[in-house]
Amino acid sequence: MNVFRFLGDLSHLVAIVILLLKIWKTRSCSGISGRSQILFAIVFTTRYLDLFSNFISVYNTSMKIVYITCSYATVYLIYGKFKATYDFNHDTFRIEFLLVPSAILAFLVNHDFSPLEILWTFSIYLESVAILPQLFLVSKTGEAETITSHYLFALGSYRLLYLLNWLWRYFSQGFYDLIALLSGILQTVLYCDFFYLYISKVLKGKKLSLPA
């Protein structure tokens, strides 16, 4: 475990908790893409199926449980408790266009043709594009609440920190995983324009608004 990976996990946890608190406290999921949250729940489910069969550490197991619990709780709040505030008019990105290619690619390009490994690979590919419905929603509404932009910044930073973690692991122990690395690069690239807007606007106290 190196500092980049730890900060990455922390950033990911902060993002997940920020979102859950935002919805719970404001009792509203306006500006949040329920479809992206469904994709994240699928990512965690397919990636952590070895939760009980493959013990790595208390940290690893507890974080997996937190991620899975929070992601399902978020989906429940959006589609259950606060569905009256769900922006179904704008949250229209076709997630089958993300699920099907990720599944096909997982069968074609993986490290090991075993069920668990193919599901892990599927979760890596899906995670790299899972934020697209959310970014699509922000572009359609033309703006994002400040708390939502903090959520996106933390979420985008997590995989950027993981890229630094893989750089560190490559030079310190010769470890690399091309599937995770290339997917992580794509995932982070998708946030680039958001990062620019966040740093140039939100950090100056302005609201995040995309050029109409």
Partner: peptide, 10 residues
Amino acid sequence: SSESPNHDEL
């Protein structure tokens, strides 16, 4: 690779 890789990252 023969052994299924052990993913120790989240």
